[in-house]
Simulated scan of single mutants.
Amino acid sequence: MKRMLVALLTMPLLAASASAQAGAGGAGGGAGGAGNAQAAAARAAAANKPRTIEGINTVWLEELTQPEFRDMLKDGYTTVLIMTGGVENNDGNLSMNKHNINNRLHGELLARKMGKTLVAPLVTLEPGNAGNTIQPGRAGPMISQATFISLLYDMGNYLRSMGFKEIYYLGDSGGNMRGQQAAADSLTKVYADSPDRVYFKHIAEYYNHTSVVQPYIQNELKIPEGIKIGASTGTSGLHEELSIDATLALADPVSIRYEQRKKVGQDEINGIKFQSLAWLQDLGRKIADLRVKTTLDAINAYRATLPKP
Rank of each mutant, 00 (worst) to 15 (best):
V80W: 13
R51Y: 00
M83A: 04
R51E: 00
Y77L: 08
T58S: 15
I53E: 14
K74P: 07
I56P: 00
W60R: 10
Y77V: 03
L64D: 01
L61W: 12
T78Y: 01
W60C: 05
N97W: 09
F69Q: 07
P50A: 08
V59F: 09
D75C: 06
L94I: 15
L61E: 07
M83E: 02
M96T: 08
F69N: 06
G55M: 07
T58D: 09
M96R: 09
L64H: 02
N89C: 11
K74Q: 15
L94S: 12
M72H: 14
L61S: 05
N89Q: 14
S95C: 14
Q66S: 08
D71K: 05
K49W: 01
I56G: 01
G55C: 08
L81P: 04
D91Y: 04
G55D: 07
N97T: 11
D75H: 07
K49L: 04
E54F: 04
L94F: 10
E54H: 06
E88D: 15
K74D: 13
G55P: 03
Y77M: 05
M96P: 05
N90V: 07
T84G: 13
L81M: 11
M83K: 02
I53V: 14
D75G: 08
E68W: 03
G76N: 09
E68F: 01
T52E: 03
K98L: 13
V87M: 14
I53R: 13
K98C: 08
K74T: 11
P50V: 00
L61F: 13
E62S: 08
N93H: 15
P67E: 02
K98Y: 06
I53N: 06
T78V: 11
S95Q: 10
L73S: 13
N90G: 05
N90L: 11
E63P: 00
N89V: 04
G76D: 10
P67C: 07
G55K: 11
E88M: 13
D71Y: 02
V80Y: 11
I82T: 06
N97V: 09
P50L: 06
G85E: 11
E68G: 05
G85D: 10
I56D: 00
R70I: 04
D71F: 03
L94W: 12
E62G: 05
R51V: 00
K74Y: 06
G86Y: 13
I56S: 07
R51M: 10
D75F: 04
D71H: 03
G55T: 10
M72P: 04
V80H: 10
N97P: 02
